[in-house]
């Protein structure tokens, strides 16, 4: 193996980002991933297990892990925490009743040490549905201001249905990760 191939390997590694998508069931995680990737979103079954999508975004390669949010399989989320650069927490802004659950699961997730360095993007999804809470209201309910000050986070309102807000959110996430990551080892 020559020097050039080693350098290439490092370069390739450098531009890769691992993004973990989590959130309660019915929040729209799979729809968001497919929408970003320009795929058909009209037939999506609730995720049993997980999906991985590799997407080229700007000059980076995103490995997006979309993990099912049903209660039974939430305990498996932790199997995907390792080496996560970006965490996307998806909220169904129209599901007012379960915001309590949503807050609890997010709080539990953020206690996880393996995710402590990951940038956190909160997507307040389903903004196209009338009666949905605004991102500001969601931020208040989830008490995001009280988060650990070392965490890089942002909340963005979006609609996986229309695609609105998705690029804004992922632009921020990718930029934030890129500004933190450099060749180290």
């Amino acid at each position: 193996m020559g020097l050039l191939s080693i350098i290439r390997k490092i370069k390739r590694k450098e531009k890769e980002m691992r993004v973990l998508m989590v959130g309660l069931d019915n929040s729209g995680k799979t729809t968001i991933v497919l929408k970003i990737n320009g795929e058909d979103t009209s037939v999506i079954s609730p995720t049993l297990g997980f999906n991985i999508k590799t997407i080229t975004y700007q000059k980076y390669t995103l490995n997006i892990w979309d993990v099912g949010g049903q209660k039974t399989i939430r305990s498996y989320w932790r199997n995907y925490f390792e080496q996560t650069d970006g965490l996307v927490w998806v909220v169904d802004s129209s599901d007012l009743r379960r915001l309590d659950d949503c807050k609890m699961e997010l709080d539990n997730l953020l206690k996880e040490e393996r995710l402590s360095g990951a940038s956190l993007l909160i997507l307040a999804n389903k903004q196209d549905i009338k009666g949905a809470l605004t991102p500001e209201e969601i931020a208040k309910v989830l008490n995001l201001e009280a988060m650990d000050r070392t965490r890089h986070w942002k909340i963005v309102g979006c609609s996986a249905y229309t695609g609105e807000g998705l690029l804004e959110g992922f632009d921020w996430l990718v930029q934030d990760i890129a500004s933190r990551i450099y060749v180290l080892d």
Partner: peptide, 12 residues
């Protein structure tokens, strides 16, 4: 430490 929601969420 699960706290109750502080914000009175509007009725749907």
């Amino acid at each position: 430490s699960h706290e109750r929601l502080s914000l009175p969420v509007r009725d749907s």
